[in-house]
């Protein structure tokens, strides 16, 4: 399990795997090196919204583009929690942060759309409230041979919850429950009804050759060229 820097990225400290806590934003390229060196290893990347879509945004789109067989579990709490609540690339427009004292002037990323557009072959979204669904999504992501991303909406009651008057952990999870809709529910809803909602569940699942498979063909070609 490989992580970058942030609240999300402390997770590898709690699992009994080979665990690598790297530099801010760079978990994916570290994981890329591991996967290419030992394709038989299952490599999971744990990251956050700031780690993966701001400082590491370039790595996210390129790892997805390569369809490298990695599973990204991205904790999205819409803020930089570890550094005390600055706005992130997923902070909603108008929401408050320690660096957005008058409300955020920026537009947030839809991380799942971003990953799918960049070439990910498995994309899903879950929440900490829907705790029973999340392991299934992660399991499916791991079993997909290609680039998989599970965005997980998480709560940061200390900064985001407090500054945006959403409340404590329980109230933030209640917010998740009230704002999450399934793909099926979303199909019956108008754009106005969907405006403040987010879709959970599996959002994309395609079959495409993964990078290591394609590179194995390169090795075959290269070795044939010198025979």
């Amino acid at each position: 399990m490989v992580s970058g820097i942030g609240c999300s990225s402390r997770a590898p400290g709690y699992v009994d795997f080979n665990t690598l806590h790297t530099t801010h934003g760079r978990a994916l390229p570290f994981a890329t090196g591991i996967k290419l060196a030992k394709p038989e290893m299952t490599v999971i990347v744990v990251t956050g919204d700031g780690d993966a879509t701001a400082i590491g945004g370039n790595h996210l789109i390129h790892a997805a583009r390569r369809n490298l067989d990695l599973t990204v579990v991205l904790f999205n709490n819409s803020t930089y929690g570890m550094t005390s609540g600055q706005y992130s690339p997923t902070t909603p427009t108008g929401a408050f942060g320690t660096t957005a004292p008058y409300g955020n002037a920026e537009q947030p990323f839809d991380i799942c759309n971003l990953a799918e557009a960049a070439g990910a072959t498995y994309v899903a979204r879950g929440t900490t409230y829907h705790a029973k669904v999340l392991p299934n999504l992660i399991e499916k992501a791991i079993s997909n041979k290609g680039f998989s991303l599970v965005e997980t909406i998480t709560q940061c009651p200390i900064y985001f919850g407090r500054m945006n008057k959403i409340g404590n952990s329980v109230e933030m999870m209640k917010w998740q429950k009230e704002h999450a809709v399934t793909k099926k529910q979303a199909e019956t809803m108008s754009p106005e009804e969907l405006a403040d909602k987010f879709i959970i569940g599996e959002l994309c699942h395609k079959t495409k050759p993964d990078y290591c498979e394609l590179y194995d063909r390169i090795i075959e070609k290269a070795q044939a060229s010198i025979k």
Partner: peptide, 17 residues
């Protein structure tokens, strides 16, 4: 890789493996 930073990170990852 997509940039110089990623190259150095990938080198570290591969060596660890």
């Amino acid at each position: 890789m997509e940039d110089e930073i990623a190259s150095m990170a990938a080198v570290c990852g591969a060596s660890l493996a």
